[in-house]
Amino acid sequence: MSDVQACLLLAAAMFSIGVYGVLTRRNAIGILLAVELMANAVNINLVAFGRLHGGPTGQIFALFAIALTVAEVALGLALVLLLARTQRTADVDEARLLRG
């Protein structure tokens, strides 16, 4: 298998571990960390495909993705702080007002 393929498979595995984290973690920050994993898996994908096709596009997109992800994490953490302050705990299972 080529190294591109190997990297893709690695990214897939990292992504699924991130999915597991998102679905399993109770603490809001823990979820954000898992989301980070997923974002990075995507970045590896982008770079791998960029390597496959040549040209700067893959890496450009990866850079954009990094910038956006960092911004998202920052905002997310701010929201987590607000959540923790409002309901006295960072447990996402406590946020159930929209329950049907």
Binding site: V19, V22, L23, V92, D93, A95, R96, L97, R99, G100
Partner: peptide, 17 residues
């Protein structure tokens, strides 16, 4: 059907995945 709306974000994400 109402039970689907648990109010927990994790379940909605699960559905998404």
């Amino acid at each position: 059907l109402r039970r689907v709306q648990t109010g927990l974000a994790r379940d909605y994400v699960l559905a998404l995945f």
